[in-house]
Every structure is written in C-alpha cells, then in structure tokens.
Design a protein around this nucleic acid. Structure first.
Length: 871
RNA sequence: GGGAGCUUAGCUCAGUUGGGAGAGCAACUGCCCUACAAGCAGUGGGUCACAGGUUCGAGCCCUGUAGCUCCCACCA
C-alpha cells in the first residue's frame, strides 16, 4: 500500500477494472431475487451537477448494498433527449453561426440534433463513472432509441384508441420565445409588480359606462364580452345589453357570470376567451367566440389593428397611451400578481387557445391515487404522498403536443383527400378510409415527459413480453428529487398502471436539493454552483460521496460545503492509515479464523461492537436511512476501531508472545475486512483498493457478501465488562490532564476493586493506553498514600499518586462535584423506581436497568463519601 | 386561499416504533507516543422556538402561537 491516501492513483483504474470485468452487469438469475433501480436519465445537454451527484450516490450506495446482499441487482442507466431543453440549446448554438431552424429545415435540424447527441450524451456518462456509479452500461438507453420510440408509439396508439388521448382546442400555456406549448407543470409562477388598469367601456345606447380592471390591456382586442356577477345589484339591469369596446369600436355583450367577483376591482371583468383560462370557461358557458390577438412569437396579429406586428408589451404601452388620451383609462393601480414563466427560457407564458393533443387524466388518475393509498407505492418520507395526492386529485388534462422538432413525433396522419385522422403504430402509406395517398403526419412532437413516463418499462423491453420485464419489473426503488414529483413520478405511476397493470416501483426515495454554503439554491445565474468533478479532482470521489450522504435525512435539503468534504477526506485518510497499520503488521504473520484463536476481552469487545454495527447499519439501509448508516460506520471506524481497538492491540502486537501477536492481527484483520465491506457501498473506491491488500482476501470487495449479524459473536457480557477497562484508562488520562501532569510521565496506579481478574488480564492495555507503569491492588485508600487523586468508577476506585501536583483543596472540590453528579443520578433513578406509574407501566427490562443503575450509583456514592472523609 | 417543512451546542445538521440530548466544524488545554499533526488525549458549550395537552415518562404524539422556507391554486 502506498504510504499516503491518494485517490487519483486508483479511482479511475478501479472503475475500469470493475467495468471490464462485468461486475455491474445484471443478468436474470432465477436463483436470486431481483433488485432493480432505473436511473432518472440525465439530459444529454447536461453536465453533472451536485444534484446529480447526490441522486447517483444514493442509488449507487443502495444498489451496491443490495448486490452484496446477494440480490440480482440491476441499475439501469440512460439519458434523456430533453426535447425542449436540447432544442433551445441547439437553436442558440445555430444562432451564433447565423443559422435558423427554418433555414436548415426539419431534416437538416434533426441531423444536427443527432450529431449533438452523439457528441454530448457520452459526456454525462463519463461523469457518472467518475462518481463510481455501478450501473449496467450494457443497458444504457436513450429516450429516443428505437426501443423507447416503439414504446411511445404503442402507448400513444393505445391511449388514442381508448379515447384517453384526444385533440382539441383548449387554453394552453404558450411560450412565445420557445414557440411551443407547455404543460401546466412546465410553467413556473413568480410574483411580479404590475398594474391594474381601469378602462371605461361605454354601454351601447346609454349614457352609462362600465369600468373593467385588467392586468393585460393588450388582450382587449380579443374581448368578446364583459361579465358582471348576476347577483350584483349595481349592474344586474345591464345584463343582456352591449358595451362598445374602445379603440376597436366593436359591440360586445354584457353577460352575467359567477366568475365576476363583486369584491374585486370594479366587479366588472372583460372576457377574453382566447387568452385566459377562466375567460375561456366563461366563453364556453355563454357561447362566446374566442378571438386570438397574438401570433406565436408574442407579437400582435391583425385583430390589433394598427398595432399589428408589435410585440405584446410594446402594444400594451402604446394602447394605454391611446386609451389615456381618449379618456378611457380612468385609473392605474399598482398590483402585484403571479406571472407564469417558461421553465426553460424564463419568458412570460401566454395563455392562448390552441388546438393541441391532450391526455385525458380523469380515468388515469384514480388508480394512481389508489396505488399510493394502498401502499403499492410508498413515498419515503411519507409526507410526499400528500403532495402527490394533492396534485393527482386536481390534475387537469395533460397537453402533450409540442411545436418542436427534437422529440418523438406524434404518430397521427391526416388524409388530404378525405380528411381522416389516422393514428397508427407503423407509418401508413395509404389512407385506410379512402385509400388516398396524400397523408401528412402531424408536425408536432411529444412532451419529453411522455417518454420519461414509460421509462421503468420501456427500458426493459416493453411492449414486448420480455424475460427482463417479467423479472425486473416492477422496479424496487425510484430515487429522485422532490422537485420532480409532478413531472415524472406521478406520470410513471399512472403509466405503469395503465400499460403494465402494475406499479412501476414499490418505493420512492425522495431527496432534497443540494444548496450552497449559505443555503441558496445552486444556479447558473447566481454563479454559486459547485462542480462535482472539481471536488472529485481535489478530494476524490469517495470523499464527495460520503459528504453528500453523511447527516442527510430523506427528503431534506442539504448544504454543500468544502469543510464537510474536507472532514470526509480526513475520514478517508483515517481509513487508509488504519488499514496500512493492520496490513503492514500482518506481513509475515498468520491470520487465523476467529474460531482458532483465544480472544481477549478487548477482542470480544470490538467484535461485539462490530456485530451491533452490522445489525444497525443493515437495518438503516433497508429503511433507506443512509445518513444514519454513515454516521454509525464513521463512529465505529474512527472511535471504536481506530482510537480504541488499534491502540489496545499494540501491546500484543509489539510484545514477544507469538500467539498473542497472531491473535491480535487476526482480529484486526477480521474487523478491518468487515469495515471495508460495510463501507463499500458508500465509498467504493478506497474500500476496494484497500481490500485487495488485506491478507486472505481475493478479488473485488464489491462482489463479496455484505456482513451479516452473528449472535454468537455478540459477547454481550464480555463487551460490557470491558467498558470498565475503558473507564479506567479514560479516568487516568483525565486525571493527568486535570493536574497538568505530562502525558508522557508514567504513573503508578492503585486500585480498590472487586474485578481484579478482569483488570489483571487487561493490565498491558491499561498501562499502555493510560500511560502508567504499574497497577497495585490495595484494600483501602491509605495504601495509595496521601498525595493521590481518587477516581471512583463503577469497576472500582483508581488512586493515582501525583505527589506535589495534588492540591487537596481542589481534590475535595472535584470529588464534591462528582458526588453531586452521582447524587442527582440517584435521585433520578430513585424517583423513577418510587413512581408507581412507572413501576406498573414501564417495561420490566427498563425497570431492571433502572434498579441496576441505582445500585451502581449508590455504591459509588459510598466510595466517594469515604474518600472525602479521608481527605 | 390550500398544503408541507423547518426552528436542537457558536455554525451546519442527525436524532423513525416516546425510556438518561449526539456528530462534524469552530473554541479551550496539552501532546510528534514506531498507522495517521489530514493526527492523539482531555475540556467547555443546549429551559431541543414558545404556550398548553396526552402519558408513569415528550426533542419525538396532539392542539395552539410566532418566525423562516417551499409547493400548489387563484388573483380580471
């Protein structure tokens, strides 16, 4: 082993070895139970960020754990074509070259897009490898691969045939910059300061005027009515009459509709069915025409008259000026309101009536809700089920058509001869209705999330009845961020149920966002993102992984900090050095199985601790409590193994007794090997690198069995007794520090104790670790001399003669302090034991423990009192 | 308007069937002792936001209050 921990010297090499040896490959094995994770496919446009790093680390840890536990573990990787995000990027790139989509044409553009994909899809995969991701690369899938495209077609056609996909004119969200529709979840709302403009509309044939309030005056060209509340006494008599739309001088009706809120504004609302979801509904109720006033790029169309061709905001500005000059504008009131923005380009989204394709959600939502209610799918933590219900129960139809080129094209053709609409799995040559040959495919592509929704089964071979699908589906756990529940998780659930008749996964492990040091979201605009690859370069992948898992609870956001990674790097260093200690000391010695050696108290103690850790870590991992598991392993490795056990082993290791040496090195090796296995899922590189040097091991640790709790190795009594030895050592160390005695000065110890055998057996350890030269058993305090400090412990009293360093006054003070501590413990235990409620209702085990504590403290109290008396 | 989360040591956060408050970092003291100074030993530091309630027992369960954060819906 190299003297220094240097992750760069082995991480890439190990990854190559793992990959080449086929360790990550999952092949159906009917003697094993499958455990499947499908990776949330990163966008091909993307670069690895901290969010990915967290997501991938969680998945890798789980899959490595399951693999070691003997499952047929499949972690299926892939990438997403990310229709809109990718198209936006390519268009930007083209713009720099002075090119437009139109210039290239659809085919030319797609050619370029595929070239882009070839160039960048590999990048994110390489980055995942740097992290140590043990996914089965032979199954790498791209959402626009042939198999996914087949699945998309199959699903589309099936839903179409069931009338669950339909085409219709609805209000949709339009991004004027991306020039495409967006689904409801792709719109992000933000409060914006704006105005509420009060505009006068004259009533036809009367001297009255109604004043409407609007935040988007430019849409007035599309007004086809004004509405008042039918119960509103102010305007009731006007219902059925008309108003004259200013500027355009068009006559539009006054309708009575509950939508008009009497309390808001003037109580009169202009109705623009083509540009507002509520108005659209009002329009439906009153048979109003929907008049679109905007073009796809957010400029005004011919309906705006002289404003035609102007951008919507420029039009607003000039129109307001005109209205003001003509006396129509009666009031401008500041008003903050929620404005929708495109989640890709941030442009303000326009609600527009448009003919689009929709998935009818009502029938799909119900079973998806039930599946979670019935625990076929479990959210971890549970609270996210509520978020899910809330959305599912109120979900509206899903607009799936996008006016883009990069994506799955909608498998619908229109016959120019007879007007038929044909939806088919395979491209039709002739019209099945009229036999005509003039078929034209729908120009639009599908929402990216339409193919993502099929991911858990499209990747496994759907629509074919593959052996993989039968074996690996439903998958076991989906690991993803809570920000993606609506986009993806919910859609996978209803899609799985609809097309596979089974939920896509049993558990959904949610994690939060990785924020920056100050708790802010990492973002490009803030420039506060931390590049995981740079962190890996500096500290190694294991340190980054551990820092992302340690102290993290499911569903909670976490902060990234260099300090945290540094602390983890120190842990790696610790593991490295401890291993080096064990391995170098094992050179030339025989490492024996535990059964063949005589275990000393310290051995039994550490082995016992190890069993508890194995049990608890496994339990925690099965509950996806990775943060808790990390903490337990950290503490065990650093405190118990390194700080205590390695130190305890030194007397034997450096002594002359060959048998003891062999025993010590055997236990050290045994525990180290287990630590490496236990830690491997979290920090795969360092553990495997070390494992290969551990005597008696062969091959990679990633295919070894995960340690199992062995009750025969629990040694509960011996382990408990050994705590007495640790107490003695700690007490002597503390006493030395307290009195300012140099740690290197060897002191003599005198003990009054009933555990002479235990202490004698561990004398070497005590002397070495406490920095003492001898132990003498005595029967009373005076034998230790006058200038001795007394440490009263459960195992007995230790007297440490310190000569001139002892200040009797301070010693009295200290003992009185300890007495007070012990007394308060006695009061606490006594109180409990005298509480009839506690005695009657508390579990017996607890009562017994409490009684034992009381006895222990009473004994200590007597000893301290005696000590004080002697001072 | 609806919903969720958070509030624990100076800082960042764990604490999952309710049974003596923890870690890392920071601070203080002392140590290079043949794995590790990226280290070791020791020490200090918390009315677990607040107020009630349930219970023999509450950081944990229930109700309410306050502050912060997030999500959804809607606001012409």
């Amino acid at each position: 082993m190299e003297k220094k921990y240097n992750p760069k010297s082995f991480e890439d090499r190990l990854y190559r070895e793992w990959e080449e040896s086929g360790c990550f490959k999952a092949v159906r094995d009917d003697n094993k139970v499958p455990f499947t994770i499908v990776m949330p496919p990163p966008n091909i446009t993307g670069q690895l960020h901290m969010g990915h790093a967290m997501d991938e680390t969680l998945q890798d840890t789980i899959i490595r754990f399951k693999r070691m536990q003997g499952y047929c573990a499949l972690w299926l990787p892939g990438t997403d074509h990310a229709s809109i995000a990718t198209e936006v990027k390519i268009v930007e790139e083209m713009k720099r070259e002075g090119l437009t989509k139109e210039q290239l044409g659809r085919d030319g553009f797609l050619k370029r897009a595929w070239a882009w994909k070839e160039k960048y899809a590999g990048r994110i995969c390489d980055q995942l490898k740097k992290l140590g991701s043990s996914c089965d690369w032979s199954r790498l899938t791209f959402t626009m691969d042939e198999k996914c495209s087949r699945a998309v077609r199959e699903v589309f056609v099936n839903l179409y045939n069931k009338n669950l996909i339909y085409r219709g004119s609805r209000i949709i969200n339009w991004c004027p910059q991306c020039k495409t529709t967006l689904s409801d979840v792709e719109v992000e709302y933000a409060e914006e300061a704006g105005n509420l403009w009060h505009i006068k509309y004259f009533v036809e044939g009367a001297q009255r005027a109604l004043v409407v309030a609007t935040t988007r005056p430019e849409t007035m060209f599309g007004d086809t009515a004004v509405a008042v509340n039918p119960n509103d006494k102010r305007y009731k008599d006007l219902i059925g009459k008309n108003v004259i739309l200013p500027v355009v001088n068009k006559s539009i009706p006054i309708v009575g509709d509950e939508h008009a809120d009497m309390e808001f504004g003037t109580g009169v609302v202009k109705i623009t069915p083509a540009h507002d979801p509520n108005d659209f509904e009002v329009g439906q109720r009153h048979n109003l025409p929907a008049v679109r006033v905007m073009n796809d790029d957010g400029t005004m169309n011919a309906c705006a008259g002289k404003y035609e061709g102007l951008d919507r905001y420029e039009c607003r500005k000039r129109l307001l000026k005109e209205l003001e000059e003509d006396g129509y504008l009666v009031k401008t009131e500041p008003h903050t309101h929620n404005v929708g923005h495109c989640y890709r380009c941030r442009a303000t989204v326009e609600p527009i009536v448009s003919k689009q394709w929709f998935v009818k959600m009502e029938d799909l939502a119900r079973p998806a809700i039930d599946a979670v209610m019935n625990k076929k799918v479990t959210f971890i933590p549970e609270r996210f089920a509520k978020t899910y219900y809330n959305w599912m129960e109120n979900v509206k139809d899903w607009c799936i058509s996008r006016q883009l080129w990069w994506g799955h094209r909608i498998p619908v053709w229109y016959c120019a001869d007879c007007g038929a609409e044909i939806c088919k799995k395979s491209d039709p040559d002739v019209c099945p209705v009229c036999g005509g040959r003039h078929l034209k495919q729908d120009e639009d592509v599908l929402d990216t999330w339409f193919s993502s929704a099929l991911w858990p089964f499209s990747t496994l071979g759907y629509p074919d009845d593959t052996s993989d699908l039968e074996y690996f589906y439903p998958t076991d756990v989906l690991v993803t961020g809570y920000d993606i529940i609506f986009f993806w998780v919910s859609r996978m659930i209803f899609s799985g149920l609809e097309h596979m008749r089974k939920v896509p996964f049993r558990d959904v492990l949610m994690h939060g966002l990785v924020r920056d040091e100050k708790g802010r979201k990492m973002s490009k605009s803030l420039g506060n993102g931390v590049d995981p690859l740079e962190v890996i370069d500096k500290y190694g992948a294991d340190s980054l992984r551990f820092s992302l898992l340690q102290g993290v609870a499911p569903g909670n956001d976490t902060r990234y900090s260099d300090a945290k990674v540094e602390a983890c790097a120190n842990f790696m260093n610790k593991i490295w050095n401890a291993s080096r200690f064990v391995i170098t000391n094992a050179e030339g010695r025989t490492v024996k199985p535990l059964g063949e050696i005589k275990l000393c108290a310290a051995d039994k103690w550490i082995i016992s601790k190890l069993q508890a850790v194995i049990r608890d870590v496994t339990l925690a991992l099965n509950k996806y409590e990775l943060g808790v598991a990390c903490q337990m392993l950290y503490d065990f490795t650093w405190s118990d193994f390194c700080d205590w056990y390695i130190e305890l082993s030194k007397p034997a290791l450096y002594g002359a007794d060959e048998g003891k040496k062999d025993a010590a090195i055997s236990v050290l090796t045994f525990v180290l090997e287990n630590i490496l296995k236990l830690l491997h899922p979290f920090i795969p590189f360092i553990t495997d690198e070390i494992y290969r040097s551990v005597p008696g091991t062969d091959g990679t640790v990633m295919l070894k069995d995960y340690p199992r709790y062995n009750s025969k190795l629990a040694y509960k009594k011996d382990a408990a007794a050994f705590e007495g030895i640790k107490d003695i050592i700690t007490a002597v160390r503390a006493a030395k520090t307290e009195l300012g005695c140099a740690p290197s000065k060897k002191v003599s110890l005198y003990m009054v104790t009933e555990s002479k055998r235990l202490i004698s057996a561990n004398q070497d350890s005590i002397l070495k670790l406490a920095g003492a030269k001898d132990i003498t058993f005595i029967s009373e305090a005076s034998e230790a001399g006058e200038k001795a400090v007394a440490k009263v412990l459960p195992v007995g009293t230790v007297y440490i003669p310190m000569g001139e360093l002892v200040d009797l006054g301070k010693e009295r003070e200290r003992l009185e302090g300890e007495l007070e501590t012990v007394m308060s413990e006695i009061r606490r235990a006594d109180g409990k034991l005298n509480n009839t409620g506690f005695m009657m209702k508390a579990p017996k085990k607890l009562v017994d423990e409490e009684r034992a504590k009381l006895d222990k403290y009473i004994a200590m109290r007597e000893k301290i009192l005696e000590q004080l008396k002697n001072l």
